[in-house]
Design a protein around this nucleic acid. Structure first.
Lengths: 185, 185
DNA sequence: TGGCTATCTTGTCAATGACAAGTTAGGCTG
DNA sequence: CAGCCTAACTTGTCATTGACAAGATAGCCA
């Protein structure tokens, strides 16, 4: 789908996505400029439109990439604690993807590729919860999944926003572990 | 500080903030346009700059308003479960404020008014956790506060992003209650 | 009554997103 | 191998926007 063979540029589509990741990591998705990406890639101001249509198209492609990366990271995790930590690590390491993925007004959330990738990530998430040893007190797996997802998503969102107090420490994964343990103890 | 008395417009500052809330609720903070706000308020395109300096200034004012509203909502809550539900209700009812507050790249996060308002909200949050009956197994209040904040913040962020599965139901407060109970059971 | 100052307007500029039309180059067909 | 065909990219343009500068207006006060 990406077409890794090069025509004029080599692989402009990939270069633009990489440049977008850099730009978003620096200044957030709101400050993203297609013309700036074109400059970074050394092409004309209208070249990005050919590959992505418009800005929303580019961010849609980024979201697809992000959900696939997330699904991969979650699948590699062992138990639910690992999966939670992997979620946090993904968000920190791929901050640009993460920030776009959960801001649907920035891209075409109903795009078939996006929904497919989102479903893959969702399935990986639920697989982690299903692997949890059942507690006889409450067999509601849906609510368990929702609580687990909420706590890791909230933690890393606050972490990325710089909203957490300094006492949280410098390592997001360690802090996340502590928090997740409070949910399933 | 706001200057509720009117000169030419009446209270342009407040009118612009209200228009900004509407615009952000409709299309997100990224799509916000100062000129559009001016049109909605029936003033010239440069009038907003007088009151807020620039776009970041306007969003800074919105963030201050948001943290104060949140602090008020949390203070009125009884126990920690109430506070969590109040947090969710605040985010849903004041979506525009909430979306700006936790996106520090959009405003001047070091503005004195913002830091003061943020501290007030943080104090209200911790007060709710401190009121929780101590569990002898783990007396770490900091981690309790972090876990509680994470789970409600994550839940409502996912809710607002439309990322939750349909099975979650139509009422965010009820779903939040179920999720929060899983943390302190 | 005269000025003072906050409030708001008019005018302008560079940057941007989107679109239209043209150009280039790799590959395919005959 | 010649010619075309189409994807990839460029050039040009326009409306919109944020920011700034300079001017006009109106309430208030000495």
């Amino acid at each position: 789908m990406t077409g890794p063979r090069g025509y004029h540029h080599g692989d402009l589509r990939r270069a633009l996505l990489a440049a977008a990741v850099d730009a978003i990591t620096d200044a957030g998705p709101a400050a993203l400029s297609l013309r700036d990406l074109a400059r970074r890639a050394g092409v004309s101001h209208a070249a990005p439109a050919h590959h992505f249509g418009d800005k929303a198209g580019l961010l849609t492609a980024l979201a697809v990439e992000g959900f696939d990366l997330l699904a991969g990271a979650l699948c590699e995790a062992g138990d639910l604690l690992d999966a939670g930590v992997a979620y946090v690590r993904f968000a920190v390491d791929h901050r640009a993807h993460f920030e776009v993925m959960f801001r649907p007004e920035l891209y075409r959330r109903d795009d078939p590729e996006v929904t497919a990738a989102r479903d893959r990530a969702g399935a990986a998430l639920r697989a982690g919860v299903a692997a949890l040893p059942r507690r006889e007190t409450d067999p509601d797996q849906e609510a368990d999944a929702l609580a687990a997802w909420s706590i890791v998503h909230g933690f890393v969102t606050l972490w990325l926003a710089g909203a957490l107090p300094p006492g949280t420490g410098p390592d997001p994964e360690a802090a996340a572990r502590t928090v997740i343990r409070r949910l399933f103890d």
